[in-house]
């Protein structure tokens, strides 16, 4: 942190000012002039929270994508399909057993197994041929998409939120003061907050696993320098399979999350593939903290964009990507 400020004082200043402005916007009571100019504070706060929680979901999808790419140089364009598949599995399990938690577990295991099969049966045979692997993932995404369309049709599915998570809770964030002087606090859906907390926990766990365990060290070394892997003589295939399973499983979990607070339908696979691409391009390939940062940035850009400039919202996301590519092509938090 201190080194960053030392090296880029201008950027640091801009970042600090931006953070201060956001904090003020979140915590202060908005003066009437501001409300007249850009609308109610409640709308703004909702967009911010939606953006951050959506960022949590994007992180779950993108972290697997970035790990798989970082370690195996495999641009898994079927990652969106794994997401959607996980969602459908979760839907099936939750309607069948009525257990939301169980749907996560099953979705993780089943999709991770798909990942293991893919790695063992397909990608292991074309190691080092990144273009060919990418082609294969494209083919797979088409096949998966059509198979899922076959089985689940074109309908929208939504996974039932469990009773204990339904309904809003009151957050200690003021949205306005009533004329009677009574403060109005923000109401926000509990389930989104819980899911966001869960993705933070998963993110921290992944970070710890990568930085504190032996396998994690190997994975990180492999991301930084692929030749090291071969040199250390570890069972590299095992590591690859584990990472692919983890990445796929996370996409599966994300599918259940997405199915709970949004919905599942054909086309969602592409949407989440695109989100992963942009998040990872912005955050930096192979970097878990990068995926987290990118996910929050893109989530916020999407939600704030769709509230304040609805017909150009996607442009904001895209401009962020362009800006990052122009200034720091390797991504914000990538090493190289």
């Amino acid at each position: 942190m201190a080194r960053f400020i030392e090296r880029h004082p201008a950027w640091a200043l801009i970042a600090i000012i931006a953070i201060a402005v956001v904090l003020w916007l979140v915590f202060a009571i908005w003066p009437p002039g501001l409300e007249a100019a850009i609308g109610r504070k409640r709308v703004f706060l909702n967009a911010v929270l939606n953006g951050i929680t959506l960022g949590g979901l994007y992180f779950l999808v993108a972290s697997g994508f970035t790990l798989i790419f970082g370690l195996m140089r495999n641009v898994n364009l079927a990652h969106g399909s794994l997401y959607l598949f996980g969602g459908y599995i979760g839907y099936a399990i939750s309607t069948w057993t009525g257990s939301w938690i169980l749907s996560f577990i099953v979705a993780f295991i089943v999709v991770a197994l798909v990942g293991v099969i893919l790695q063992l049966a397909v990608f292991r045979r074309m190691e080092g041929q990144d273009l060919r692997q990418t082609m294969v993932t494209i083919g797979l995404s088409i096949v998966f998409a059509d198979l899922m369309l076959w089985v689940f049709g074109g309908d929208f599915y939504q996974i039932q939120t469990p009773a204990w998570l339904i309904g809003p809770i009151q957050l200690p964030l003021l949205t306005a003061i009533k004329s009677s002087g009574e403060p109005v606090y923000l109401q926000y859906p509990l389930v989104r907050l819980v899911i966001f907390a869960a993705s933070v926990v998963i993110g921290v766990a992944m970070w710890l696993a990568l930085n504190r365990t032996r396998i994690g060290m190997i994975v990180r070394a492999g991301v930084d320098d692929r030749d090291i892997l071969a040199a250390t003589g570890v069972r590299i295939q095992l590591v690859f399979v584990l990472v692919f399973a983890l990445g796929a499983g996370l996409a599966g979990i994300a599918g259940v999350v997405g199915g709970t607070f949004q919905s599942l339908s054909p086309g969602e696979d592409t949407r989440f593939l695109l989100a992963s691409l942009v998040v990872v391009i912005v955050g930096g390939m192979g970097s878990i903290p990068g995926a987290a940062l990118g996910a929050v940035i893109i989530g916020l850009a999407e939600q704030l964009g769709s509230v304040y400039i609805p017909t150009y919202a996607i442009v904001v996301t895209f401009l962020i990507m362009v800006l990052v590519l122009a200034l720091r092509p390797q991504g914000l938090l990538a090493r190289r």
């Binding site: 140089r73 641009v75 364009l77 990144d130 273009l131 990418t134 592409t270 695109l274 691409l277 942009v278 990872v280 391009i281 390939m285 996607i314 442009v315 996301t317 895209f318 990507m321 590519l325």
Partner: peptide, 14 residues
């Protein structure tokens, strides 16, 4: 290299 695919796909999707 392989980044080209990702960036151009992102442009197309956007």
């Amino acid at each position: 290299g392989i980044y080209t695919i990702m960036i151009t796909l992102a442009i197309g999707a956007a």
